[in-house]
Design a protein around this nucleic acid. Structure first.
Lengths: 164, 164
DNA sequence: TATTGTTATACTCTATAACTATA
DNA sequence: TATAGTTATAGAGTATAACAATA
């Protein structure tokens, strides 16, 4: 358990939730409704923070996946985004025109195309993430250490839930 | 502070986070990145749970706002959804054809139209929320009481953050 | 013959501008 | 004259089907 004594005056229970939820609020059914609202509202607000290219969500996701996974084929990107291949062809072409990605030949398979981020694309991803995290960090900085600890634990639990 | 002694064996600290986050994970900058991922992934997964009408998000939001606020004018709905009036005209007409909303005359102002949910529309909203909450509640039921308490506190903090 | 990607075509959603009806 | 809403038209995004190139 972290000792934050010096700076916060809080010792052992630095991550105790300050205003304890009631037992009712912790029942799965009630909690689900509360949490759903919190998640949707936060996601909506966060998504509004964008990089300077101000891309639509579906185009930004392409940059996000390339940033996370490295160069990918259009077919793979289409599958990731749950769209059909022709739609991804269109999105990728738009991003090429914007100078955010490039298309290159596959080294061994002449049928395939490899899509990768340009420097501008890398910058756009970084800028978008930076703006979102800056906005969120400013809000989190207004919380007290115990509340931040709660959010840190919740962040990990939400990732587990989403991946289940 | 709630006493959950009997059922959980946990007394004073029922909402203590089980695996305490490290101090680093609680710093606003690091926490923001973790939380952003948790929020986006959870929202994406939750949004996939829909009612039987399987409406696109923008059409479902109209039902959601009507459900929350009662009958509204198309212009108000357009403003809420940040779209232009003609777009909302189209969405509302689609929902009318689906039998989920109705358009009526304004009692005093002949220019205005009042959009309200039909019984089918009410049912669709309830079903969507029920499916999302059921899915989420099942995941939450797999957590231990302390983890659920953490999520309950986080839910309230997220609503505060989103509304700030 | 199967796979990868693109082009052709149509439908949906959105926006701006012009129009109708009412205040 | 101002307001609420619709219609007209055009620009994106997506889907299915057909096509081209390669394995």
């Amino acid at each position: 358990m972290p000792e934050l004594t010096v700076r916060t005056g809080i010792t052992a229970a630095a991550h105790v939730v300050p205003a304890a939820p009631t037992a009712k609020q912790c029942r799965p059914a009630e909690l689900a409704a509360d949490l759903r609202i919190g998640i949707f509202r936060s996601a909506r607000r966060l998504r509004a923070e964008r990089g300077s290219a101000d891309l639509p969500d579906h185009q930004y996701s392409v940059l996000g996946w390339l940033s996370k996974n490295g160069p990918l084929a259009p077919g793979v990107l289409a599958e990731m985004q749950h769209v059909q291949p022709p739609s991804m062809t269109r999105s990728v072409n738009t991003l090429v025109e914007l100078g955010l990605v490039r298309k290159s030949e596959h080294p061994t398979d002449g049928r395939q195309v490899v899509v990768s981020l340009t420097d501008a694309g890398v910058t756009e991803v970084k800028e978008t993430l930076r703006r979102r995290d800056t906005w969120l960090a400013e809000r989190l900085a207004e919380l007290n250490p115990a509340e931040r600890s709660t959010m840190a634990a919740a962040a990990r639990l939400m990732r587990g839930i989403a991946d289940s």
